Simulated scan of single mutants.
Amino acid sequence: MSFLQNPATIIPGADSPRQGRITLVGAGPGAADHLTLRAVRCLGQADVIYYDRLVDPEVLAFARPGAECIFVGKEVGAHSWPQSRIDATIVAAALQGKHVVRLKSGDPSIFGRAGEEIAAARAHGIAIDVIPGVTAASAAAASLCQPLTLRGVTDRVVLATATCCTGDMPSGVAEMARPGTSLVFYMAMNQLDALTAQLLLAGVSPAQQVTVAANISRPDERAITTTLARLSQDCRAAQLRNPAILLIELAKLAGEAMAQVGSDPAKVVCPA
């Protein structure tokens, strides 16, 4: 596995022809070793890398020597790099014949604004592809040893944002919060009170267990388990802030679980 320390050993030779192109690369939620091998290879080929605020600086060690690494991070309420500027910048670089990597935390296709960047590239006839990354929900489930699905308990996963582009809550919370669902909310820490109210209105019990995982796979990773009723209070007490996600396992009703696994009671996992 020596190529992980020396990306130059897996990139094309210097004489390989190059055309301008854009690659959206998922860096995962934090730790550099969540990168896929394809992502490492691509970083070793890039002429310029535009990277997000949450990308671990160690990830940039895989960049080709001489490649430009340009920070284009955004924070809520502090958009020195609004999406329109990012779109224009990566397109301009690709039109100069450069291989542009747009390096995003998590997975580009999950709340990563990939759609706008894909559309911008296609509008200018620029080749574009996407390298997936480990999304926060998967990384948190692995870190906590808390699977996102469980036979007889949860048979679907819903990944939702708690902060829409207008700042409003997402619609359809009641539809999401069905028994048998592992519900994961991204970008929820500034919406905890409103989200709690929506879930209670949807019929979720105040005693429903909620896990909050912050800074997943980073040295300062933290997680707490609380109830829906105490969610806001306990997050404030623990000083948990973004980046964080909420994981809510809405177990099947006992009758639904029995129907799924058959009549053998030993195979039925019922809600606590």
Rank of each mutant, 00 (worst) to 15 (best):
G106E: 10
P108W: 00
S109K: 03
S109A: 14
F111V: 12
G112A: 06
R113F: 04
A114F: 08
G115V: 09
G115R: 09
G115C: 00
E116C: 08
I118V: 14
I118M: 03
A119Y: 02
A119N: 03
A120D: 05
A120M: 00
A120E: 01
A121Y: 08
A121V: 02
A123V: 03
A123W: 10
H124M: 01
G125I: 05
I126E: 10
A127S: 14
A127I: 03
A127L: 08
I128Q: 04
V130T: 12
I131A: 01
P132H: 04
P132E: 06
P132V: 01
V134K: 00
V134G: 01
T135G: 09
T135H: 09
T135L: 13
A136W: 05
A136M: 11
A137H: 00
A137G: 07
A139H: 07
A140P: 14
A140T: 14
A141C: 05
A142P: 07
A142E: 10
S143D: 12
S143W: 12
S143Q: 13
L144I: 06
L144Q: 11
L144F: 10
C145F: 00
Q146N: 12
Q146C: 12
Q146T: 08
P147C: 10
P147T: 06
P147D: 04
L148T: 03
T149D: 05
T149Q: 00
G152A: 10
V153F: 04
V153P: 02
T154N: 07
T154P: 01
D155E: 09
R156P: 08
R156C: 08
R156L: 05
V157Y: 03
V157R: 07
V157I: 14
V158N: 15
L159P: 00
L159G: 03
L159V: 03
A160G: 13
A160H: 10
A160I: 08
A162S: 08
A162I: 02
A162D: 02
T163F: 15
T163S: 15
T163P: 08
T163D: 12
C164V: 09
C165D: 13
C165E: 15
G167P: 15
G167M: 12
G167C: 13
G167T: 15
D168E: 15
D168C: 06
D168T: 14
M169P: 10
P170N: 01
P170D: 06
S171T: 13
S171Y: 06
G172L: 11
V173I: 14
A174C: 04
M176W: 13
M176L: 15
R178W: 04
G180Y: 07
T181G: 07
S182I: 01
S182M: 05
L183W: 10
